[in-house]
């Protein structure tokens, strides 16, 4: 092992430059990594309404769409593991959701509202545990030419699961 010299090394301007250049190179490499990875992996996060507005502009791009799952539309073919369902538009703005009475309420309204924009989703894979009526689905994938969304990733949130209204089992008192 090399001997540990604890001599006090005085900085020279050449030494300093070496460190600054080295540091800058590493920082540049990190910035490059972040920029290129962002470009490669970015996904547009849209609501169903926004997706319909954009139309062809987003065809073939990686997208992430959030909406409320319509329970009646869920079809699952166990043979082919093909899962089909539609999601209804919910606003993305947190404040707006808060004003309309919270996420659970917004999801409920979206599914009940027949005029809400809907999007059909197809996903191949196991049926997720959390998929059910009025869950919030966040699907990642591409919009097909037929207007059906081909999801390769399916994330579900059920806002009612945590800290929801308690079932009213009143005894009075």
């Amino acid at each position: 092992m090399a001997e540990k010299t604890l001599s006090r090394a005085e900085p020279t301007s050449a030494g300093r430059t070496k460190f600054i250049i080295g540091g800058l190179l590493i920082v540049a490499a990190i910035v490059y990594l972040i920029a290129s990875s962002t470009q490669a992996a970015a996904q547009y996060y849209l609501t169903v309404d926004e997706l319909k507005d954009k139309g062809d502009v987003v065809a073939g791009r990686d997208l992430k769409i959030s909406g409320a799952v319509d329970g009646d539309s869920i079809q699952y073919d166990v043979q082919t593991l093909t899962l089909k369902f539609t999601i209804a538009n919910v606003p993305a703005d947190l404040n707006q959701i808060e004003q309309e009475g919270g996420l659970a309420e917004v999801l409920h309204k979206a599914v009940a509202d027949k005029s809400a924009t809907r999007l059909q989703v197809v996903y191949i894979g196991p049926r997720p545990d959390l998929l059910r009526d009025e869950a919030q689905a966040i699907v990642t994938g591409r919009l097909g030419a037929d207007g059906v969304f081909q999801a390769d990733e399916l994330l579900l949130k059920c806002p009612t699961r945590y800290e929801a209204e308690v079932p009213a089992q009143v005894q009075g008192g």
Binding site: S37, T38, A40, A41, A42, Q43, Y44, Y45, L46, K64, A92, T140, E153
Partner: peptide, 9 residues
């Protein structure tokens, strides 16, 4: 426009 990055990023 909300753009997200996933695990590949």
């Amino acid at each position: 426009q909300k753009v997200t990055v996933g695990p590949p990023f």
